[in-house]
Design a protein around this nucleic acid. Structure first.
Lengths: 219, 219
DNA sequence: TTCCGAACTACACAACATGTGAAGTTGATG
DNA sequence: CATCAACTTCACATGTTGTGTAGTTCGGAA
């Protein structure tokens, strides 16, 4: 009933092996094109040729270019282990460690997704369907940020001048592909450098140094 | 000799009143379209019609859509007082106040430029000319960030774990339209809220609380 | 005021991308 | 081995970019 894949994806579910193979081949081809030559280079004809099928066949799987790009989003999340990367955050013993792991997650996952993310953000501004799907994805990210902010607040580690709400918003805004791209691609920061400096910024910004560790609020 | 306008702008300089009027009308029309209906809605035909000229006339001023968008970038910088907004940063008495004014600048200028900026970032990935022009613009911004970082370092106020280099990169990455858009548009933060929280984050992240005010490094 | 030329119009055209239609072909699966 | 979904092939409509060319208008200088 609740199909989590495409917004208007024509094909609903049970597919045979050949169909799945084609679908995956197209997605992989599209990803490769985006990563090699950017969002503008991704045409249906190119993706088809590279996947070894005809242009018409692509439309049997994705009713529009927009939908292909949206499907790429979910495809990559699966392929690159988004869920697992985020799960590590909640496995940390306390909120401060969680925040650090969050920085690590951003540095680990987002660089692998930059090209597709760029394309997704692009179609979002064209198609209302895409906008809706994109909103769902960002809301899930916001939920993570809220959980982090409330974790900090609950442990008395949220720095003064922040509320759980404002910290949520700011953390969420800091999941910016622009930011990751600027540092990782333009400035050549390694994943470790990225993780380290993000963690540093997050801790200095959001963590109250006096909470617990200092003297007060230790319970 | 050094024409700062278009990259391949066919028309070099002296123009009569009619020409200047048309050029401005097209730029204003393009801006309005971007702000009302997003990057995808900006076609040469639309911009022409809205400016009250023919599509062909637009090509007499801007040799391509890409170039129109790039020209918009400079047009807006002029129109919205980019130079003046940045100048206030350097008028502040010390680096910490400068950093705060920088946050204020981001909150003041960037929300007014979001739509055009989105379009610019888009064409940058298509046209090498656009990429070059974009790089020039961002390098100018990087110079500002470097000046800020070195100001802090010179006054002994740069927080530990940052170097002038890494602080420059991070400050530069934080000029992210994504970030501004997320907070201002998506989350509805006002310009004041934005300025305040950005300033807070910048200070906590980059300013050494012990420098000068505390006890050490006062000289 | 006249007149020149730059700026603009009108129309036509090529190239390319998206998306759809419809008839034929292939291949996995019962 | 027959069936049917998946795929191919070819054709077409539409929209956008960018260029070519001949004619028209308007600003500004003589």
């Amino acid at each position: 009933m609740c199909n989590s894949r495409g917004v208007t994806d024509p094909i609903t579910e049970p597919r045979n092996a050949r169909s799945r193979r084609t679908r995956t081949a197209v997605l992989a081809a599209a990803r490769a094109i985006l990563e090699e030559r950017g969002p503008a280079a991704l045409t249906m004809a190119e993706a088809a040729e590279r996947a070894g099928v005809t242009r018409r066949a692509v439309y049997l799987h994705f009713s529009s270019r927009t939908e292909l790009v949206i499907a790429l989003f979910d495809y990559l999340a699966e392929e690159e282990g988004l869920h697992e990367s985020v799960r590590r955050v909640w496995q940390r013993p306390d909120s401060v460690a969680g925040l650090e792991e969050w920085a690590r997650h951003l540095a680990r996952y987002h660089p692998r997704v930059l090209a597709v993310d760029q394309a997704v953000r692009r179609v979002r501004n064209q198609d209302p369907d895409a906008a809706r799907h994109y909103r769902r994805a960002t809301e899930s990210q916001r939920a993570n940020c809220r959980r982090l902010a409330e974790w900090l607040a609950h442990e008395g580690r949220l720095a003064p001048a922040w509320t759980a709400d404002s910290a949520t918003d700011m953390l969420w805004a800091l999941i910016s592909s622009d930011l990751i791209e600027a540092l990782h691609v333009e400035r050549g920061w390694s994943e470790d450098q990225l993780a380290g400096h993000l963690a540093l910024m997050f801790r200095r910004t959001f963590v109250d140094p006096a909470g617990v560790a200092g003297s007060a609020a230790a319970k």
